[in-house]
Amino acid sequence: MTAPLLIARDLRRTFASGGRRVAALDGVSLEIAPGETLGLVGASGCGKSTLARVLTRLVAPEAGSVHFMGADWLKLSGSRLRAARRHMQMVFQEPLAAFNPRATVAGVLADALRIHAVVPKAERGAEIARLVDRVGLPAALAGRSIRNISGGQRQRVAIARAIAVRPRLVILDEAVSALDVSVRGRILDLLVDLQRETGVSYLFVSHDLAVVRAVSHRIAVMDAGRIVEEGPAAEVIAAPSTAVLGRLIDAVPRLKGKPQA
């Protein structure tokens, strides 16, 4: 087995809530291999978004360590941090908050390409056109303002921006949860195709177990700030050992009346 791309050990983080300290992360450890998708599921408030935010350094943990691409990720700073950041990208549920609201689609992608010097300046225009096409958006959309496109289109721009810099890991926090099912299907196919082509790893965070199962090699189940179950996707779902996973399985809406394939 190849060395893990990311190793998190014993991450801890509490938040104040109504005068008490509540543990959002209560000793979380996980590993993600190159080219692997780790699905992270759990109910609202289980700590999965906090974990995504700690891994991306948007929230500092109170204890624990993260090694990413062999470096002590939480201790990186300055130019070494900027260089490493390129390789850990993130996509959130509501992408509008993650963009400069005055930017155009092309401008968003141009910034990412320029900041991380992904391609020579002369090739930037062609690379933007390639990215827009890659995520299934019409070329004419590149000149539109990020505010004047639909939510599904904006989410595809967020994914285009994340993959523009050719990262090693993309953290997707409920990235497809707000999309129409037809758009969701195309985005999931796109993510899987990109992984086959580039070997990118994903941490796929969602409350929707069916979607997580469809795209993940391994699944980790979170409850009350801890990972309570972890293993290959099919095995974990076939034999749940915790009540929380049992509830997530029972809650998946089944299509009543669908003929068996």
Binding site: E36, V181, G185, H217, R218, A233, A234, R254, L255
Partner: peptide, 20 residues
């Protein structure tokens, strides 16, 4: 038909194969 086809549940064939 498109809505039926886009449905994902625990019986949907996974999009990914075995772990890399």
């Amino acid at each position: 038909a498109a809505l039926v086809a886009a449905h994902i549940d625990l019986a949907t064939p996974p999009l990914v194969g075995d772990a890399p």
